[in-house]
């Protein structure tokens, strides 16, 4: 069992996950941010490795990705930074990014490196289920890396069942038809969507993301799921001149 699977085994409710882009605001902030987030109460993290053409992302993460690339961030540099990850951080870590970057690094080399530095899973939104199953599942499993799939309000029940079968950590529920960074309001239709998923009695736990921006939306989403993921709202609040302080300030709202 990797750390991610252990976490979900241990804790079933109210898990708080934070996404941030590696290399932003400064090239070498990656571990410091992870460390500060763990101290401030995050349960697990998604570290984004930047891509020039992030189609699933809204303006905030597009901008942080571009800045990270301008700062010189690459996947080899990220892995170098993560060498000391497990000396400093104990919570589960996922890497999140686009498939072309992984393909150029080499899928097997990527998975191997993830295991070596202590990464537990990854989210590659444009890696389709078919290709994962046909070409990469065996490699991911060899290195005990959990691949996280997304589900949206339009995903059919049959496909959700298939995703559930291929998943071994959690399923990422995209809150609405949108790119990252929107504003979630739990309308009747999204509540119905979350309930519909809950009623399916999936074998995997699920976590809600996209548009979760503060305590209020986090609590609302957590009612229906095992937890929720905050991305754009966190990235927007990171202040390069007061890195630790700005992170702690942002995280304070979730303590109570």
């Amino acid at each position: 069992m990797n750390r991610l699977q252990q976490l979900f085994e241990k804790q079933q409710k109210g898990l708080l996950s934070i996404y941030y882009t590696a290399g932003y605001p400064n090239l070498n902030d990656t571990l410091k941010i992870a460390d500060t987030l763990e101290q401030s109460g995050a349960d697990f993290l998604e570290i984004g490795f930047p891509y020039s053409d992030p189609v699933a992302d809204g303006p905030v993460i597009q901008a942080s990705s571009k800045e990270a690339l301008d700062n010189g961030m690459t996947l080899p540099i990220l892995f170098e930074q993560l060498k000391d990850l497990r000396q400093r951080v104990t919570i589960p870590i996922l890497l999140m990014g686009y498939v072309n970057v992984v393909l150029q690094y080499g899928v097997e080399a990527f998975c191997q490196k993830c295991q070596e530095v202590g990464v537990d899973g990854c989210i590659i939104p444009d890696l389709p289920m078919y290709e994962y199953e046909e070409m990469y599942q065996a490699i991911f499993e060899k290195y005990e890396l959990s691949n996280i799939f997304l589900v949206t309000p339009q995903t059919s029940e049959e496909r959700i069942r298939k995703i559930d079968g291929l998943s071994n950590a959690f399923i990422y529920l995209v809150s609405s038809a949108a790119t990252t960074g929107g504003n979630l309001s739990i309308s009747e239709s999204s509540a119905a969507y979350f309930k519909r998923i809950a009623d399916m009695q999936l074998k995997n736990p699920f976590v809600i993301g996209f548009g979760i921006s503060n305590k209020e939306t986090f609590d609302a989403a957590s009612q229906y799921a095992n937890g929720a993921i905050i991305g754009s709202a966190f990235v927007k609040n990171v202040d390069a001149n007061n890195l630790e302080g700005s992170i702690k300030d942002f995280m304070r709202q979730f303590k109570s």
Partner: peptide
């Protein structure tokens, strides 16, 4: 270019070592 993925299909594209377009 080298083989990779751009705009939804695997093809040949101009990219850096790191896979940036």
């Amino acid at each position: 270019g080298k083989e990779g993925v751009l705009h939804g299909s695997r093809s040949i594209l101009m990219q850096t070592e790191d896979g940036q377009v």
